[in-house]
């Protein structure tokens, strides 16, 4: 009886071990294939040149720059809204109806499919506000998409600031806004930063929201203003794979783009996760 139950335990634990190994293998093989195929595309011109010969040669410079613009734009949109929402939820509002409504909205906004954000951006920014297909429209759309993430990271960071620091500040005669600005936010900054970095990773990789709001098939030049449409890395991969005229050559360019994106996303997420773990250790 005892031996039987020990054997069941061994078997069960082995099954769980297999699960985690599968998860790791998938991640490993994905990174391996993209890395081994993508690295051959890497060269100086690949990063800086514009696409040439109907996207079979040249580089993907405009797509890289476009992605950077979209990421910066979306952070500019989401950061103030997100941090202020988190401040309000943590510092001002008692537990009441308003807070519940805001929380519910944030949670549900987080669950909206990304292509629906694209529809929203198309109807509101592109059409209604007449911003056309542009970096501005794309940034606003992506900004709303990453807003819930920024809110919850900021919320966690602000709520983790020990109450004793706020009390110390009030006891010295600080007002609430002084306490928030000089004590709470600086102490929460690493956590908020983590949220921003994760937002960067998300905004860089999202494709569906920019399909109809910012992305263009092919650009001969770098974007010149926030009203220009733009190439972007994830969209460029999609274009190469679906509308390509020379599949074999263009597949390799797509590998290169995927590798840039993968490195970017893994690096920023890695940094964010590292920062967060260090932060958690600090507060215990």
């Amino acid at each position: 009886m005892i031996i039987k139950s020990i054997n069941t335990q061994r078997l069960g634990f082995a099954a769980l071990f297999v699960c985690i190994i599968i998860a790791l293998l998938v991640l490993g093989s994905l990174i391996y294939f993209i890395f081994s195929n993508g690295i051959s595309s890497f060269s100086w011109t690949f990063f800086t040149d514009i696409p040439r010969k109907s996207m079979t040669a040249g580089g993907v410079g405009p797509a890289i720059i476009g992605t950077i613009y979209l990421v910066i734009g979306s952070i500019i949109v989401a950061l103030p809204l997100g941090v202020i929402t988190a401040i309000y939820l943590c510092e001002y509002s008692p537990k009441n109806l308003i807070v519940n409504i805001i929380r519910l909205s944030v949670n549900n906004l987080a669950g909206v499919p990304s292509v629906v954000f694209g529809l929203f951006g198309l109807a509101v920014f592109v059409k209604l506000f007449n911003f056309h297909v542009s970096i501005l429209s794309g940034s606003l759309t992506l900004g709303i998409l990453i807003l819930p993430g920024i809110i919850s990271a900021s919320y966690e960071a602000i709520i983790a600031v020990p109450q004793s620091l706020r009390e110390a500040s009030y006891a010295l005669g600080a007002t609430q806004i002084q306490t928030i600005g000089r004590i709470v936010l600086p102490a929460a900054l690493p956590g908020i930063l983590t949220g921003i970095i994760l937002g960067v990773g998300r905004a860089a990789g999202e494709t569906a929201p920019i399909l109809f709001t910012a992305a263009t098939f092919y650009a001969r030049t770098y974007p010149t203003s926030i009203m220009s449409d733009t190439m972007a890395l994830p969209y460029h991969i999609y274009v190469l794979m679906t509308e390509g005229t020379h599949p074999e050559v263009q597949k390799m360019i797509a590998y290169g783009c995927a590798l840039i994106l993968l490195i970017l996303v893994l690096a920023v997420s890695g940094i964010a996760i590292y920062l967060r773990q260090r932060q958690r250790r600090k507060y215990g």
């Binding site: 020990p162 004793s164 009390e167 500040s169 006891a171 600086p186 102490a187």
Partner: peptide, 11 residues
């Protein structure tokens, strides 16, 4: 002025 139970210097 007030001094608290646990020392609470700002970081």
């Amino acid at each position: 002025g007030m001094v608290f139970q646990k020392p609470n210097p700002f970081p």
